[in-house]
Computed example of a mutant assay.
Amino acid sequence: MRQLFESTVQRIFGDIVTPASLLARKAGEWPTQLWAAIEESGFSVAPAPESLGGSDASWNDLYVVVRAAGRYTVPAPLPEALLANWLLGRSGLDAISGPLSFAAANTLVFADGKVTGQLQEVPWGRHVAQVVAVVAGTGDLPSQIVVLNVKDATLANLRLNMADEPRDDLRFNAAQPLAFAALPSDLPADILLLGGAMLRSAQIAGALQAALEMTSRYATERSQFGRPIANFQAIQHRLAILAEHTANAMVASEAAFAESGDQLALLPLMAAKVCASEAASIAADTVHAIHGAIGITHEHALHLVTQRLWSWRSEFGSQTFWAQRIGREVCANGAHRFWPAITSAKLEAENNPVQKTTPSGELS
């Protein structure tokens, strides 16, 4: 299934998501043609069980899809739809093939069958038809998965990230969910934050791959002092560092997807987001240094990649946020379990109460 996914998604993205089409788009514009192709392919519902309208695809299968979304700088919430439909499937709810996103942070309250509160920084919130969120449990009521109709929301704080991707707040007042179910007991309440970090690590890995290819090609074609700049040792050194960090991010993110199943692999995904975010910062600096002035022009495609690297590295938790959380989780796990955790990619104390922080780094 993975090979089929990879060949199909590359064909779709290669045909529709070209640098010319991306440069011609208006900021935050909805990609109608692209989403129609995504829906027709069935990728957005792939992680859901077949009985609920999906393909029962594993995260290992879906890694190539999410990485390709980063490599081609896809301007659509396909990764978000994958995570939302996976969670719906885990909760026994039907998959949603239409425009779909999720909110990792919210102030929702679920009472008397109605939802009130605000969803924060919803990817493509102004364009999607439905959004998935987790409402924290209170008292005897467990945490709930809710599917909300965006038409019932008031759009607030409409924003674009650095890559011109919408990140919007949605306010609901006694809204009737389209569907809801109890969050599976083996999933943490911050499952969408964890999943969002895993998605962004793979997208960053794909964008790094594109940046490396673009920069290596430019260094070979651009001549200075009578020879290609790729022949200069200083350029070779920087390209080697770029290649190392790209490989590191790709391996780390793929490991997170491969280790995830009915539950997301906590330690691998945290490590993947740290590695990918660090690589994003180093790569953006390197590729612009090698490209020089032409790399910052609007007409050149380089900024399509680097603006996403800058944006994605801080979404769903920054490098510092996840590094700190790894430290807390490892300490809670105990010194005698440190090496077993490294070799097994699992923390035995994952369910123990640990002091958490928000993605901004504040203690909760």
Rank of each mutant, 00 (worst) to 15 (best):
R11Y: 08
D15S: 15
I16F: 06
A20H: 08
S21L: 10
L23P: 09
R25W: 02
E29Q: 13
W30Y: 10
W30L: 13
Q33D: 12
A36W: 13
S44T: 00
P49I: 08
T73W: 05
P75H: 07
P79D: 02
L82A: 03
A84G: 07
R90G: 01
D94E: 14
L100W: 05
V115K: 13
G117C: 06
P123W: 03
H127S: 11
A133M: 02
V134H: 05
A136M: 13
P142R: 11
V146H: 05
V147D: 04
L148T: 11
L155G: 12
N161V: 15
P177D: 02
L183K: 02
P188M: 06
L192V: 04
L193G: 04
L208Y: 03
A210G: 09
E213D: 15
M214A: 13
E221T: 09
G226E: 01
R238A: 12
E244A: 14
H245P: 06
A249N: 02
A255Q: 13
Q263K: 12
A265R: 00
A265S: 09
L267P: 00
C275I: 11
E278H: 13
A280Y: 03
D285I: 08
H288Q: 10
H300Y: 07
L302E: 01
L309W: 00
W310C: 11
R313L: 05
G317R: 00
F321N: 07
A323C: 10
R325Q: 13
R325L: 15
R325W: 08
C331Q: 14
G334H: 01
N351A: 14
Q355C: 12
K356L: 15
T357R: 13
S360P: 06
L363T: 10
